[in-house]
Design a protein around this nucleic acid. Structure first.
Lengths: 149, 149
DNA sequence: ATTCTAAATAGGAATAATTCTTATTTACTG
DNA sequence: CAGTAAATAAGAATTATTCCTATTTAGAAT
């Protein structure tokens, strides 16, 4: 990655109070640029060409650390694999069941709708931190993105 | 379980085109009565007292089969475990992050709201099969249920 | 620039979760 | 009741994730 990007990613990590090690910078950068909500194994594979010494065990550990400090979020999935997302804005996920893909979906109107709904509700014994829509379905053409407009 | 319940569960299985074996009846009944969205291991543990010969490998296989025929649904979770739900009506899930619990949440108004939203949308390359909210947050008292009214 | 050290890492072992294999059992059809 | 395709138990194998330890390193202090 170019030195500007490297520096930016490094700063994100340092600002979060973590030691800005090279493996961490590499993992976070991969997560920021990979919008596929990858598993640890997929992140590790993607890093191999340019970072062959970053170990899989480290990738697992680093991802959990990034979640811990808020630089990443775990993504709910149904196939028993841990997945991650670097996007921290409020958005929803489209789950293509047939291709086992999870695609981001963002709509300010939807966010407002959900917020409005919960604003009217009385919630007991629970503090909501995040609400997202889980949109399950099947992709027609596996090579194209899903679009909702 | 009483013989009426056993018979009802057996009929659900037979109606779905599966051989109504005892292990299958036991697993489906456990899923119908356990609202905790259990893992295969939890279902197996729950069956032990009255069904000690049902093996863990069989529970895994049976759960996937129930999903295949529509008698169960996989539940999205973030901790890398496969969970299951026998409820097939349209509902959402409350994820208590601190207690790692998933609680059902049903509101017809919410369902209508979501349906209305998507009715206005143009969706390409995707066929929606199900939409639910993932309501993430933290439980205050771990021994009480979350309520949203 | 150098030293120091607490924290991070690589590498691999260990554990947990899930899937697969095979000999045996069984639900259901005829 | 007999037959048999499908299901199962039991355990092995595989995959996903976590843990351990010797070594390395980022960054603070000088």
């Amino acid at each position: 990655m170019n030195s500007n990007t490297y520096q930016n990613t490094k700063e994100l990590i340092a600002t979060a109070g973590l030691k800005a090690t090279h493996p961490r910078i590499a993992v976070l950068h991969e997560l920021l640029t990979n919008e596929e909500h990858p598993t640890a194994e997929q992140v590790h594979t993607a890093l191999q060409p340019n970072n062959p010494s970053v170990s899989l065990g480290s990738v697992y550990r680093i991802l959990e650390k990034l979640v811990e400090v808020g630089l990443a979020r775990p993504v709910a999935s149904r196939n028993g694999l841990k997945r991650y997302d670097a996007r921290t804005d409020s958005h929803s996920h489209i789950y293509a069941v047939n291709t086992e893909e999870i695609q981001d979906y963002y709509d300010e109107e939807l966010n407002d709708l959900i917020k409005g709904y919960f604003d009217k509700k009385k919630i007991s014994n629970f503090k909501i931190t995040e609400v997202k829509l889980q949109i399950n379905g099947e992709k027609a053409d596996p090579d194209k993105k899903v679009t909702i407009v």
